[in-house]
């Protein structure tokens, strides 16, 4: 059976205490919800000299909306996003992504920070946060820094969070009125990694696209990725623009044959969900 190795466990009372613990240990391991962290301990994938439970830190809690901007503490549970009363288009996109995470029980356990930091390409929140242009507030002993989520992931399960840093909060502006949003997750086996996830936001003025953001994740890509769509601003979108966006998305395909499908299948799925996303958020202009 799977049991964790002998560990030392601390539940610090403040971020600064947590940061001190991080700095004092050579192989510290942060857990919050534990759905992946405890599993990795059980699998003995790591042997930390200290497990630091930051799941209850008050400073990492809460969802606030100030000056048209959301601040979501990294230890906020996934279900809190879903249960939140915020309902702008941006937050609604995040809600939909949150309600696609795992299952109802796992959503009661897992945290927003965990979903963002694990770096599993098939996690649900990263594509939504990419589309929302979220800034990650990262705290370290020397202070805090902000990093756009688009430069956070450097490979599967790898990101730019340093060993002695903690993701404090996730911040994004509510795109507000006139935006349409879309989120879709495609998987073959439930609770296995998804094949492809897509998140999209768009604003169309008259017939012209004012803003379009599409991000994809899933096992079909290396890391959750934003599709380059800035060129579309001011254009009346037709078939040609749709095909160009679909092509830009499919170029992100990692395209390896594995249990999540053949290279061809994955490419096809990226194209399909990108098209669905585009048509849904751009709407009836085609």
């Amino acid at each position: 059976m799977l049991y964790p190795p002998q560990i030392n466990y601390e539940r610090p009372e403040s971020i600064s205490e947590a940061l001190s613990l991080l700095n004092e240990h050579s192989r510290p391991f942060l857990i919050a919800g534990g759905t992946i962290g405890v599993l990795n301990l059980k699998r003995r994938a790591l042997s930390p000299d200290l497990v630091i439970d930051i799941g209850r830190l008050k400073e990492l809690k809460g969802i606030d909306f100030r000056d048209e901007k959301y601040r979501i503490g990294s230890a906020v549970k996934i279900y809190e996003i879903i249960d939140s009363e915020f309902n702008g288009p941006g937050f609604s996109l995040l809600k939909k992504a949150a309600s696609s995470v795992g299952d109802p029980l796992l959503r009661n356990m897992g945290t927003v920070g965990g979903n963002v930091c694990i770096g599993d390409p098939s996690n649900d929140l990263p594509p939504a946060l990419l589309a929302l242009g979220a800034e990650l507030n990262i705290v370290g002993k020397a202070g805090s820094r902000n990093l756009n989520i688009s430069s956070f992931y450097i490979g599967p399960y790898r990101n730019l969070l340093a060993k002695n840093e903690i993701l404090g909060s996730i911040n994004f502006a509510e795109p507000g009125k006139g935006y349409r949003w879309f989120y879709y997750k495609h998987y073959i086996r439930h609770l296995d990694h998804s094949v492809v996830n897509v998140a999209a936001l768009a604003k169309v003025e008259g017939k012209k696209i004012d803003d379009l953001r599409i991000a994809i994740g899933g096992m079909s890509v290396r890391v959750p990725t934003l599709i380059e769509t800035s060129w579309i601003k001011g254009i009346t979108a037709g078939q040609e623009e749709l095909q160009r966006v679909v092509k830009l998305a499919s170029e992100k395909c990692l395209c390896l044959d594995d249990r999540h499908g053949s290279a061809e299948y994955k490419k096809n799925m990226i194209e399909k969900v990108t098209q669905m996303a585009f048509l849904s958020v751009v709407g009836g202009v085609l």
Binding site: P4, Y9, R11, I31, G34, T35, V38, L39, V51, D53, G55, Y79, P104, L105, L106, N108, M109
Partner: peptide, 18 residues
């Protein structure tokens, strides 16, 4: 599955300490 503070969770993915 057990209820933890009123919400169902999977108790095999949690430390008792948590």
């Amino acid at each position: 599955t057990v209820l933890l503070d009123g919400r169902p969770v999977k108790s095999c993915l949690m430390l008792a300490a948590q």
